[in-house]
Simulated scan of single mutants.
Amino acid sequence: MNRAERRRQERAAQKAKTATYNLTKEQLDNAVKEGIKEKLAEVKEQATQDAINTAMVLLLTLPLEVLMDHYWQKSYAKRIPKFTEQVLEYYERWQNGELDMDKLKEDLWEYGGVRLEERED
């Protein structure tokens, strides 16, 4: 076998390894859209998880800081573990549907003087 035949054989082997597909523009556009939808869903899920984690950190840390700085300055070391446990217990109760969000907002308005409203942008 001479050099030209070997090169021809190598090119044929290379072509056999490479798969070639014929797609219409519409098929290609649909494939790209599906890929984008999947990636977008993953990004949305990650953003949601990040927002939930941030909210949970703020839910626990901000009230604790206020209680330590302004209310329980001398006794916070004893009181905070029980307080944190009760906050998490109420959170679990809310997750299980035992607490009503509207009732919680109403109590916040009535006793705390803070009204939380959802707004559309």
Rank of each mutant, 00 (worst) to 15 (best):
G35F: 02
I36N: 04
I36V: 05
I36C: 01
I36A: 02
K37H: 08
E38S: 10
E38T: 12
E38F: 06
E38W: 01
K39F: 08
K39P: 07
L40H: 07
A41W: 00
A41K: 01
E42I: 09
V43D: 02
V43K: 00
V43G: 04
V43H: 00
K44A: 13
K44R: 08
K44T: 08
E45D: 07
E45H: 03
Q46H: 06
Q46E: 09
Q46C: 03
Q46Y: 09
Q46P: 01
A47P: 01
A47S: 05
T48N: 13
Q49L: 09
Q49C: 04
D50V: 01
D50A: 06
A51I: 11
A51P: 08
I52K: 14
N53W: 06
T54M: 15
T54S: 14
T54R: 15
T54W: 11
A55H: 13
A55E: 10
V57L: 11
V57H: 04
L60G: 04
L60V: 03
L60N: 03
L60S: 05
T61Y: 13
L62Y: 07
L62Q: 11
L62W: 02
L62S: 10
L62A: 14
P63H: 03
L64R: 15
L64W: 12
L64M: 15
L64Q: 15
L64I: 15
E65I: 06
E65M: 04
E65T: 06
E65S: 06
V66F: 05
V66H: 12
L67W: 06
L67E: 00
L67M: 15
M68P: 02
M68D: 05
D69R: 11
D69K: 14
Y71H: 10
Y71L: 05
W72I: 01
W72A: 00
W72Y: 01
W72T: 00
Q73L: 03
Q73H: 04
K74T: 11
K74L: 09
